[in-house]
């Protein structure tokens, strides 16, 4: 990197590192998770086929495909987040930027519904799979408890970390749009 030093107070070599870090930080987390899901997809596909060959039960094949479908949805969601983090644009007019930020900080976004759908696909996979036949009701209670706990933890994090940002953006949008 060969940035010119236009301001002696700023170490632009350090800045380059910061720029690259900022560019990649969030996107890399999503990219990592996306890769994990794309690796799991063929593995679980093979497991589903192998289980079907062993048991000759179509329901096992279907359960395996539900797992695969769930991973596929998660992989697509992570890819979408990766793209979103890579494309935060501070050069938009302030009002547009605020509206986009407001959407990003919403507690429930349409995208989250896809994650819920993926979660329930996985749950259905557990329910149908012969490997988890015992104590189905108990397992459903555990799964539901995990789901509710995840939502509650997510909301607590949102409340303390993102709600002030959400409220600020809402207030500023109202102020700009107000006559």
């Amino acid at each position: 990197m060969n940035f010119k030093r236009k301001n002696d107070n700023i170490n632009l070599d350090q800045l380059v590192g910061k720029l690259q870090k900022e560019d990649n930080r969030y996107a890399n987390i999503c990219k990592g998770l996306k890769v994990v899901y794309w690796v799991l997809i063929p593995i679980y596909s093979l497991i589903a086929i192998d289980t079907y060959i062993d048991t000759k039960e179509l329901i096992d094949l279907f359960a395996g495909l539900l797992f695969v479908g769930s991973f596929l949805i998660f992989a697509i969601i992570m890819g979408d987040f990766q793209k979103e983090y890579n494309s935060v644009d501070y050069s938009l007019p302030t009002l547009n930027m605020l509206k986009k930020a407001f959407d990003r900080y919403k507690p429930f976004r349409p995208k989250a519904l896809w994650a819920v759908a993926a979660f329930f696909l996985m749950d259905a996979g557990f329910y149908l799979s012969s490997s988890f036949k015992d104590r189905v009701v108990d397992k459903q209670i555990y799964v539901l408890a995990i789901f509710l706990a995840s939502v509650i933890v997510g909301l607590i994090i949102w409340y303390f970390k993102y709600k002030p940002l959400y409220d600020n953006s809402k207030r500023l949008i109202a102020e700009i749009e107000g006559e």
């Binding site: 700023i10 800045l15 910061k18 720029l19 900022e22 501070y90 050069s91």
Partner: peptide, 19 residues
Amino acid sequence: QKDMYQEVLVNIWKSLDNF
């Protein structure tokens, strides 16, 4: 001022492709 200056430069870099 320096912190904000750096932050502005970071955001210019991040948004440069959108100009």
